[in-house]
Design a protein around this nucleic acid. Structure first.
Lengths: 116, 116
DNA sequence: CCCAACTATAACGCCTCCGTAACAATCGGA
DNA sequence: TCCGATTGTTACGGAGGCGTTATAGTTGGG
């Protein structure tokens, strides 16, 4: 199945959702940070710094810094890979799951209220 | 009309679109900046610093700074309101319109490709 | 004609992020 | 057992955002 959206509807949806996120005022993440968070919570584990950097086409320090920030907010955790100690496995947290869930609820609600 | 989305679809769509935006790598805007840009291009003019600040529930310097940044990128312009010289009218640019249009196209494309 | 109210912006010190480069730890094949 | 390759992180100087506060310009009612 696919979702049918006209450009004006798509942009209105994007606008409404980001507006809600800004108004809530809890965090002001960049596109990079949001993408990293959603990738961790939506795609199949395991997630590594290297893997995320490749997927997003950014450098590894970008990932490290984002994980530092979101780790401090308890939205994400890191664990050493015991089978290869060079790797770091990025893991989900309850708080992060709730945050992502809330984003999903906002999108659904705004899509439902979309005029036209 | 409204758009029917389940939470998992909504999040997948958000993930796919932000991923595209990050991969393109042209800009890395925050939620605030994106919201300001979309508000200017989607809502009825005129737009003022005060009005945007109220709508987004942020302080005026936040808006001024965002306009500085996006103005330097030619995504937005400022003009003095001739009927009340205290006001600044924020205006659209060709480059900004194309940028917003591209975001719309990405959302539509990703919605169409959405599995399930 | 004042002057309080309102506009947007500038200034301040702080913090976070940037890209690049160097780094320590670890792995695995020769 | 080396030693080159690979992992993630840290260090660096620079750029830009933050919230708060101060400021310059403008308005309009008394």
């Amino acid at each position: 199945m696919s979702v049918s959206l006209r450009p004006s509807e798509a942009l209105a949806l994007w606008h409404d959702v980001t507006l809600d996120l800004v108004r809530d005022g809890e965090h002001d993440f960049s596109s990079r940070q949001i993408t990293i968070l959603l990738t961790i919570y939506l795609e199949q584990p395991p997630h590594t710094v290297r893997g995320l950097a490749a997927k997003l086409k950014v450098t590894k320090p970008v990932i490290t810094r984002a994980l530092d920030t979101m780790g401090a907010l308890d939205l994400v955790t890191r664990r050493r890979d015991e089978t290869d100690l060079r790797n770091v496995i990025i893991q989900r947290t309850v708080k992060g799951a709730l945050f992502v869930e809330r984003i999903g609820d906002i999108i659904v609600a705004r899509a439902k209220d979309l005029p036209r």
